[in-house]
């Protein structure tokens, strides 16, 4: 259990230590990538709670979502349409759904525990 936590800490410190400055026009990609990652993490937690967790789906979903979101943002920039908003919207909605489901599942579990 300590390996993922260690990796999270390493990743966080790595991100804090890097001195790479991203040009302004790429800040959209970064934010969308963060959102995609967040969405995938919560999706993973939800899947885990529902007992449907598949590491392959999780892993590919994580990277695929990030890349797809960046691609969408790139396309939007090229077309002059703020397509990354679509990604933000989609990920935001899914994020809320996932969190809602996680909450419900957790509440259900607790109630079961109380009943038992």
């Amino acid at each position: 259990m300590w390996l993922p936590a260690l990796c999270l800490i390493v990743g966080l410190s790595l991100g804090l230590m890097t001195d790479i400055t991203v040009p302004d026009q790429y800040s959209n990609y970064l934010s969308i990538a963060v959102l995609a990652a967040l969405d995938t993490i919560f999706g993973g937690i939800r899947a885990h709670l529902e007992g449907l967790f598949n590491e392959k789906v999780f892993l590919t979903g994580f990277f695929f979502n990030i890349i797809l979101a960046a691609l969408l943002a790139f396309l939007g920039v090229q077309l002059g349409v703020d397509l990354y908003l679509a990604a933000v919207f989609a990920f935001g909605v899914r994020l809320f759904q996932n969190i809602a489901i996680i909450r419900r599942v957790l509440i259900d579990k607790k109630q079961k525990n109380v009943e038992m």
């Binding site: 990796c7 999270l8 990743g11 966080l12 410190s13 991100g15 970064l30 967040l38 993490i41």
Partner: peptide, 10 residues
């Protein structure tokens, strides 16, 4: 995943 996620977030 957490490594990448942490990196991205921070």
């Amino acid at each position: 995943v957490l490594l990448v996620f942490g990196f991205l977030i921070s």
